[in-house]
Design a protein around this nucleic acid. Sequence first.
DNA 1: AAGACGAAAGTGGTTGA
DNA 2: TCAACAACTTTCGTCTT
Length: 310
Amino acid sequence: MKNNIYDKDKKIICPKCGSNQLITDHESAEIACENCGIIVDKNLVDIDPEWRAFDHEKKDKYSLLKTPTSYIIPNKDLDTMVDWENKDGPGQDISIRNKSQLYRLKKWQRKTRVSGATERNLAFALSELDRDSSRLGLPKSVRESASVVYRSAVDNNLIRGRSIECVVIASLYAACRRCNIPRTLDELAEVSRVTKKEIGRTYRFLARELNIKLPPTSPIDYVPRFASELGLSGEVQSRAIDIIEKAMEKELTSGKGPTGVAAAALYIASVLVGERKTQRDVADITGVTEVTIRNRYKELTEQLEMGEIL
DNA sequence: AAGACGAAAGTGGTTGA
DNA sequence: TCAACAACTTTCGTCTT
């Protein structure tokens, strides 16, 4: 079976979203779509409909079965192997299977001994990622973005000495921030067995090694989620965002924790609009203390000349 | 009685010598 | 590596509604 993606002159596009913004990865011979994050493998020989039409759940399942042949083994060897299997295939199932296994074992041992472990690692990590992100109610785009981060972490040998779960969570953290729907370290720590400290440390490590540069999280990004969890109206939200924008102009927010600023802005806005929440309510949802809210609140009202509250 | 306020002491992380 | 430092937390007593 000849595959048409392999042709070098042909432009490769992402089968899922049609984007041609593909990132080629050096060592693993895989191509990732920058837009939606799925893997489009250039060296893939066996293009079944199932592969072509994969969405992410399916891809995870099939990757166990298929990826060892598609990801790792150089394409020329792979071509040979596929042909050989196809010719001898009908009739003698068992012996063929044995031969095939032997062949692959040899291959793996000789050239890519790590790859078996790597694949298992990846499969485990991706299911972990699925579990965590669905617990957090994260959209697919974030999950995909996180899996891209994780894969590159694997490719750069960054997981060694770290737990898979830890790296997965750190990847998720990065992905959330990139997608502008940040989650706090506390929230991430809650759904995993990794401590907040470790997540932070691992994230910083990944960011440094992978050259991920993300601007500091804006308090504004937290407003919609916190507001809806507090049952506050859209009007309160826009007032809060207003306050934060003004505060940022005056550089009142730099160096301060974004959740604290968001919490205080929401509190102030809730009072202004007349949907008052107690400091305790806001503190519980936002994960900061009342004291912090009070401090931010004080700074904001003083510096922004909001005497109207008093 | 509940919520808001603030002082004081403690924690974990960053920075700079 | 260590100390200084800022942000944030915990705790607790006082004031306000």
